[in-house]
Design a protein around this nucleic acid. Structure first.
Lengths: 336, 336
DNA sequence: TTGAAAGCGCTACCAA
DNA sequence: TTGGTAGCGCTTTCAA
């Protein structure tokens, strides 16, 4: 089998120099239209695709983007970050980039767990999805590898996240529209900035309309944002007297846990208790009753992060904007 | 910032030629031990890591492995293939390879959906996880890109899969040990070879011990292997008279669906009905009652596939073995 | 608007 | 056991 065609083959076939082929393939420089056509036709006919290695070597760019994710985030059954990755991968494809996915354990030991591409400098930039150990981010910074955070925030590094505030506000508005005045909040994972934003916007909006949420009805569990935590901490809200008539949970997992706890206590949803979540995970629509929640477009999160990074890399933009929001959307189902 | 060190820097620092550095870095050739030490020390001191691009260009190997997965398999909430990927990524890391994950839609259009690395020849080989459109496999073959299938089979391509037969047999043995003689089978996804292997081994083992399973108790639904299918088709087994006292399901999703259906019918598990699944998904241990099942080591599946591929690539092995089995293990819980 | 030529950092062959 | 050197296929000045 003849080995794959090179730039010289294309040059020869289209009777131009390899420089010209290079210009055409990269859409650069002033090339006569006829020449361009001829080159493209030849490339197509020969099935030519530039060698990544050669390109990388000559241009000092790898064309690779790293995608870092905490291992437990990746293997969890809720495919949140999976979708963020999918969005990033999609956008990368559009831009002719490759994505190297690397998971890191938590806790993270910089000496042993550093993604290979980091030490080998085989990526042009990195997307970091979700919370990771700050050490990793410091490593990136130390090696001056550009990075964009998705669904996380650290220092003043560029980040793209869901519009948590507008989502939190939407829930409050919805509760009020349904006639609720005595509402509560259930959160977890105090480290992560998103829940805090959701909470603050929610509490703020409730206060604005004259129904401030008493401190006793604002619960932030000191554990992971999962269903179990939701169920275990539900009592702090449900077993009080008086009890709120509606609860906003920082995410769907907690909300599903709260629903479990409510059902155990024989509470009717949404009549005795209205519940809203955040994320719109797969399980939200399947819950009994189906969960009212704020939808995050997970793919868009990844797409946007990768897009920003890529633009920053090519210099298309001077500086990556420090904070980019992806819109959220209230999805009203039966639970509230 | 000074740019990263190159092989010449290391050569200079250790007072040898770049050829020698190359030999040392690749663990090749006869190099005096003292020299080796000196080179390694210098490399370490300078923070030298070989450039992937240069290496790839010179050696005509990319050091990249493609990992192909159907999109719906990747985004499904059960992180089965996610773990297979994790295993592959882990093994790749050990071997100094990168994994390029690419999802493909189903149905697959070879012209529009072909993973980029396929047309760009930027991988040395490919791991294909789970079922994909045969067109893709034909493309790989046509371009003579070596590949290994994980949890799938096609033609006589090398494949690594769970030991379905021994798992199926283990379930039969367990049922018999529990005193069951009238047992059934629930499967789905007739296309995929694994369920068929599980079924045949199971039915064979039952027949061997003198309790053949009547055809009427062998149900293979013509849909996806999911919980809903399990619940919907459960009636074909549960609403018959007489009814089997134990049912083996081709996977956990179906088994969980069957449990749902059984609970709706007021059947006590495992007294009225014993149920066993296959896979040992996260949800199996959490089911009510916890599901007896056959565990597949998903990471091992990915590790093995990538390992075999890598060995084949380096020529460490003459030919990749056509069929490699990863052991399975019966996990007895409360449902059977 | 096009071409010539100098590398990019490495591997692998051949000599020493 | 080590070194010299010819590429690998491309990008990128610089000239023409």
């Amino acid at each position: 089998m003849a080995s794959r065609p090179t730039i010289s083959d294309v040059a020869e076939a289209s009777r131009v120099s390899i420089s010209t082929v290079s210009l055409v393939m990269n859409g650069k420089g002033p090339v006569a239209d006829a020449t361009r056509q001829r080159v493209l036709a030849a490339a197509d006919r020969l099935g030519y695709a530039p060698s990544r290695s050669a390109r990388g070597l000559a241009a000092r760019r790898t064309g690779n983007i790293g995608f870092v994710l905490r291992e437990d985030h990746f293997r969890q059954s809720e495919p949140f970050y999976t979708r963020v990755f999918l969005g990033a991968e999609f956008e990368a494809r559009r831009r002719g980039l490759y994505v190297l996915l690397s998971t890191v354990p938590d806790p993270y030991d910089p000496a042993r767990h550093a993604p290979r591409f980091l030490t080998e400098h085989s990526v042009d930039g990195v997307v970091v999805a979700g919370g990771v150990d700050a050490t990793l981010l410091e490593q990136l910074r130390a090696r001056s590898i550009p990075f964009v955070l998705a669904d996380y925030a650290w220092d003043d590094s560029p980040t793209v996240s869901a519009d948590n505030r507008s989502g939190g506000r939407a829930v409050a508005d919805h509760f009020v529209a349904q006639g609720h005045t005595r509402v509560g909040y259930l959160g977890a994972d105090p480290e992560h900035p998103s829940p805090a934003e959701r909470r603050d916007a929610y509490l703020g909006a409730m206060a604005e309309v004259g129904h401030p949420v008493p401190d006793g009805w604002v619960v932030t569990a000191d554990g992971p944002s999962d269903r179990q935590t939701g169920a275990l901490n539900a009592g702090l809200l449900l077993d009080r007297a008086p009890r709120p008539t509606a609860v906003f949970c920082a995410n769907d997992a907690l909300a599903l846990g709260l629903l479990d706890a409510a059902s155990e206590r024989g509470l009717a949803i949404p009549d005795d208790l209205a519940v809203a979540g955040f994320d719109d995970v797969d399980g939200a629509a399947l819950a009994k009753p189906p969960l009212t929640t704020v939808r995050i477009h997970k793919e868009t999160l990844g797409e946007t992060a990768l897009g920003l990074l890529a633009e920053g890399l090519t210099g298309a933009v001077e500086e990556i904007p420090p904070r980019t929001l992806v819109p959220t959307e209230l999805v009203v189902r039966a639970s509230a």
